[in-house]
């Protein structure tokens, strides 16, 4: 493995997501950023984990390990449209849990904001 490849591998899991967001923005696309801001019980991603989403629904990173990403992407498209940040909450007690709940039984709050 060459040096560059190693550096890429060793970058922490969150690295690269913000870079991707900046790249999409520089290409003139609308971009939103979703960040895990609080967790209760067992949650698959820790506080600070991020997901970058562009206006076409492409995304980089993760906020839950796959459980709620689909729903977050939909909300992110709304946020891109309105420009207003919002806080989302997902958990097994959520009424939409059947569709987008967390199988692990935890609850997470996610802050979604548009990249200016």
């Amino acid at each position: 493995m060459n040096r560059a490849g190693k550096e890429e591998r060793l970058m922490d899991a969150q690295h690269g997501i913000l870079e991707q967001a900046a790249e999409w923005r520089a290409a003139g696309r609308d971009v939103a950023l979703a960040t895990v801001i609080q967790t209760w019980g067992s949650a698959p991603q820790s506080v600070g984990a991020q997901l970058a989403i562009d206006a076409e629904g492409n995304f980089a990173g993760s906020v839950s390990g796959g459980c709620v990403e689909g729903a977050v992407v939909t909300e992110a498209l709304d946020v891109m449209e309105s420009g207003a940040a919002k806080v989302l909450e997902y958990g097994v007690s959520n009424e939409t849990a059947w569709e987008v709940g967390l199988a692990c039984g935890g609850t997470i709050r996610i802050f979604v904001e548009k990249l200016g």
């Binding site: 690295h15 913000l18 548009k114």
Partner: peptide, 14 residues
């Protein structure tokens, strides 16, 4: 997040 905050964040990480 404002573009300038993102820029400063990326520079700080580097």
């Amino acid at each position: 997040m404002k573009a300038d905050i993102l820029q400063r964040l990326l520079e700080a990480r580097k």
